[in-house]
């Protein structure tokens, strides 16, 4: 008798398991606490040819445009500001820190300087919109020396977002 009851319960359990298997489904949600910052693209000055005259290449964070001054010739390529996604609590104020000093980007033993960092939104205090998500664009100025050696130059910089 005891065995029968156990067997019955086991049967019920199996039935439930089968039913649950049929209604399996996924529900997903992402919970963000505090503030998050994720990188989408790098800051890309693109391709260029250097000449006997030094020059600069500027990436504008507002319209993602590229302009050159001096002896540098711009070549069609993938260009644009560094882009990030910031997520945080609606309408919260936060502090955005972008580089304030120059960095070197380099290849082999050659280097170029990137400085005059600009961003949208501007550095300092900013506000997360009511949707809780916003895009951050960062631009800068690349200094190309006269007869700059050929190569794919790269260097790293950091960005910080924090609640005050």
């Amino acid at each position: 008798m005891k065995f029968r009851i156990l067997a019955f319960f086991f049967y019920i359990l199996c039935m439930h398991a089968a039913v649950f298997a049929q209604v399996n489904s996924n529900a997903s949600a992402t919970i963000i606490r505090g503030i998050s910052l994720s990188r989408i693209t790098d800051l890309r000055f693109g391709a260029m040819i250097s000449t006997e005259t030094p020059g600069t290449v500027v990436i504008n964070p507002f319209d993602s445009s590229r302009t050159a001054v001096g002896g540098v010739i711009l070549i069609y390529s993938d260009i644009g500001p560094a882009t990030f996604t910031i997520m945080g609590e609606s309408n919260a104020n936060f502090i955005l820190t972008i580089p304030s000093s120059p960095i070197n980007i380099s290849v082999r033993d050659q280097s170029m300087v990137v400085d005059e960092w600009t961003s949208s939104p501007a550095r300092g205090q900013a506000q997360i919109p009511s949707q809780g998500i916003m895009q951050l664009n960062i631009g800068g100025t690349l200094h190309v020396k006269a007869n700059q050696a050929w190569g794919a130059y790269s260097g790293s910089f950091s960005v910080t977002v924090s609640y005050p």
Partner: peptide, 13 residues
Amino acid sequence: SVLQFANATGRVI
């Protein structure tokens, strides 16, 4: 507070 890195790149031809 969150810190992220990105690269700055440029290619001289």
